[in-house]
Amino acid sequence: MRSYAFERPGTVTDAVRRAGSGSAFLAGGTTLVDLMKLEVMTPDRVLDINRLPLRGLDTTGGGLRIGALERMSDVAADPRVRRAYPVLGQALDLSASGQLRTMASIGGNLLQRTRCGYFRDVSTPCNKRLPGSGCPAIGGENRTHAVLGASGSCAATHPSDLAVALVALDAKVRLQGREGARTVDLRDFYLLPGDTPHLEHDLRPGELVTEVVVPALPWARRSTYVKIRDRRSFEFALSSAAVAVRLDGDTIVEARVAVGGMGTRPWRLTAVERALVGRRATEETYVAAAATAVEGTRPLRHNAYKPELMKRTLVRALLELEQTR
């Protein structure tokens, strides 16, 4: 691990004032400490933000506000989350391991780095880690890589399950910078790789994620998260789906659909949503709607299974949702 100066800012203002290029905020540490050991991340200053007052869940006025330093396991266990947004609780439950869920913060979860093996291995080139050095994944091992949103520079997937569920729910992130606070749709927060895969999100230098805001969506009580992976537990998604459906009798009147493991960022599928709305909630409808999900997918050598897996994951998620009717 490279050496760094360790600082404990006392307030959000202080944290943001001290932050800048070369610094890193430390919350749960499950990404940062890991990547500092691998020397994939080499900050010269680490700002421990764990004592900042960015905790708590708030449901006053409808919707849900989650402090960025809330831990994954605590949010997953909160009865208000489980009741109003099952998709969020399930996405958190299916993430990582018990120890890591206890440690990792919500803000850190959204900012965790890709699991691409080349990104994590400093002996290989990687455009995300070292801009302009090349992408060995595109012509190399790419079984777990993205089929949506990839460029000639990068095909790394975004690893967060929580972010997939939040994108389906139209969540926003609240950011605090030196010039003040702003709110950004999580969907727009993540950037496509293009020629600049090292730029992953719309976060200005020194800006801090302070809160996640989930709008009120009463019919999200019928929502679910399905995750498909190589192991049954403690593994990242090859494919995942976050779905919510509002029914009027047997007819779907509103739907929210997003997938993980497929895209270079959490991927909202509005075409699938449109294909569901106005139709009867049957397996035929789900299969036909899921078929629209694969439009625009561009498989690489080892991940040609992914579009089909995405369709099946979506159909399974929609069928599982019927059980909660």
Partner: peptide, 9 residues
């Protein structure tokens, strides 16, 4: 609370 001490500074 249970944590992995290898990732705890």
């Amino acid at each position: 609370r249970r944590v992995v001490s290898c990732l705890t500074l």
